[in-house]
Design a protein around this nucleic acid. Sequence first.
DNA 1: GTCTATAGTAAGATAGAC
DNA 2: GTCTATCTTACTATAGAC
Lengths: 212, 212
Amino acid sequence: MASELTSRPASGAWQWGRTKQTQRALLDAARAVFAEQGFSGASIADVVERAGSSVGSLYHHFGGKSELFLALWQEHQAAHEKASSAAVAQARRSGEADPTALFCVGARAFLEGSWLRRDLAMLFVSGDGPPGFELMKRRREHEWISQNDALLRLADTSLDRLYAAILTSLIGEGAREVAACRTRRQANAVIDAVIEYARRAMAGGPWKPPTP
Amino acid sequence: MASELTSRPASGAWQWGRTKQTQRALLDAARAVFAEQGFSGASIADVVERAGSSVGSLYHHFGGKSELFLALWQEHQAAHEKASSAAVAQARRSGEADPTALFCVGARAFLEGSWLRRDLAMLFVSGDGPPGFELMKRRREHEWISQNDALLRLADTSLDRLYAAILTSLIGEGAREVAACRTRRQANAVIDAVIEYARRAMAGGPWKPPTP
DNA sequence: GTCTATAGTAAGATAGAC
DNA sequence: GTCTATCTTACTATAGAC
């Protein structure tokens, strides 16, 4: 019983704070270094130096370079998720019920986030990530569109999934273009244009093969 | 003068044939190995073993792993290019003059090629390539759409480039879906659907900001 | 032109003191 | 929890015989 006290003498609360602080420093450093050099171009040494931390600490908290990158990505995803669902919920409360319109509201919030965090957005679409990252992104994309499933009222046929994939990639390409903009004004124009193209693609709903 | 003969004694023609043969073997082996294991997963040793060649030979002919991968990609691109432009030329000869229709003809030929060489198509969209490959792909995409520039009669404004980018990514996503199909029948349906979505997106031409 | 054997390099990962 | 020093490994790339 006494050993608990001797092994960590009255410092539990303090160490929690320190942990969060260290992780934050590593994540922030990773954001800057990865954004600048890409995943493969960046070395662990660069990150820990910028964070004022150490290799061992990084491994202790995240497990490795790949996991650090993924942690950064998950924060980014969570922010997108939060903004999108909040926007859709808000629109619903305002009386909007049309699936297409609700989809556009969510998409707009997503594109907005791509502008606000454009350094991360560019990083994640650059194609330079840890092994298997493209697959993870793809899964996430499908989750994202599945979440709007009730919204768009799609069936689970292969052609409906194609419809979802096309819309997803359209918004994804839009996000890339938004992140590449240099001014707020340009970004706004691009966002409006992308939403318009999505609306056009959705006109008529999922394509059906002509019945012979 | 005589030294030319002594250094390569009467074997010029024979060696040319052998060179082409070796390169072909390396390219074919690379196609199989990269398609199966991806770029980073595959090692040079795997490729030369399958080709019945050697590391030194690979370096002699291609210069390295990355260059071998790029050579494979360029063959794939050339095939796409050839098929697309032939199809467009053919349609023109048949009297088709509408830009949108001609674009769709080219896109269809492109998607067709993605089905025929689906192993390569999947490889190149997997996101696992040599450093800088995603950038090269992106440049190539823009070239491809620029080639249809006269066709679509686009100006060089940023919003017209967005229009091109959206269409390109739509066809690109379509190619990915086509390559993932398991039967010819499915692939045909997907191709028809993708062309339809492209047509919808083009309805009304490039988006213009509302004049205030 | 082709091959084998080897060198070089770089980076991620770990062990163990504090 | 944090850090430094070291290890390991896996690969590319080259040198030099045939």
